[in-house]
Design a binder for these strands. Structure first.
Ligand code: SF4
Ligand code: SF4
Lengths: 141, 141
DNA sequence: TTATATCGGATAAATAAAATCCGATTTATC
DNA sequence: GATAAATCGGATTTTATTTATCCGATATAA
């Protein structure tokens, strides 16, 4: 019932890239250091983000990662499902056949509803909003 | 981001006991068989449910488990938190100190809100409702 | 007293998460 | 071109968690 650290790191990475701006290439080491992510692990995570076209990986000297979509269009759900696959709370939500009770089980319907509610919450949160909220917070000092 | 099997089994067990009725003692083997739960594992789970006063364990010959609260008062959240501890989606929701970003991080607020929404959904679902819904479904054949 | 149950602590097995390693490859710069 | 600075991506290792079982102790009905 919990986020994996992999997801958490992915969100942090994208948050950092959003902050730097859409077209800017930022080195892996720098992201890892500033966001407290184990460097080589970030590499692995980046590969998954790249497969989902959330970032573009630039190789070679001065290489790094660059955000592809604009932060307005990019949601928490996009990033999380890029590294975790589809979000759901119980196997039977996705594969009803996995349980003999599923034809009559109303617990399953609760999990289904809760899953959709959760995905909806994440879908509604864009990185643009997150950045805006944080900068407002900081400027109100 | 997923329910453990332990939780799933706990819910099934309580569902079965609710169905049988509040004062009835049902043997562990029978519950395990009918609900497809590994027998000894159910024993462990039952101990946790007993600690939270959700069931009472009757020892000795003809022993087994008995539901303590009435199904109207008992919610999915009660059962799940009895075996998992408090439900939350990310460490920083419960322990803000676990992350250096938490003072300004708005992702954290999303996790917090989503966690509360999830708990609310589970809190609203009583076992009485679940049973009723299933029996309605069955009688509409 | 015996047969039937569960208890509860310890432990084993299986699975998944988290992290790292390293040869290959790509690119900027001199 | 040669060199240095990056990441790639597959394999592997380490660690943590989940899942399940074992067994001597204990409790109860008959
Ligand atoms: S018992 Fe219900 S909730 Fe549990 S796995 Fe089966 S269908 Fe899903
Ligand atoms: S970065 Fe934000 S969401 Fe992630 S752990 Fe830290 S406080 Fe929580």
């Amino acid at each position: 019932m919990k986020l994996t650290r992999e997801c958490e790191y992915a969100v942090r990475c994208v948050l950092y890239l959003s902050h730097e701006g859409k077209e800017i290439v930022v080195g892996r080491r720098r992201i890892a250091e500033e966001m407290e992510i184990p460097g080589p692990f970030l590499g692995k995570i980046a590969q998954q983000l790249a497969r989902s076209n959330i970032i573009e990986i630039v190789q070679g000297s001065k290489g790094g990662f660059r955000l592809v979509p604009s932060p307005e269009k990019l949601t928490l759900l996009d990033v999380i499902e890029a590294v975790m696959g589809k979000v759901y709370l119980n196997d039977c939500v996705l594969r009803p056949d996995s349980c003999f009770r599923s034809p009559t089980c109303h617990v399953r319907l609760v999990w289904k509803a809760a899953t959709e509610r959760l995905r909806e919450t994440l879908r509604k949160t864009s990185f643009a909003k997150l950045l805006e909220a944080e900068s407002e917070y900081l400027s109100s000092d």
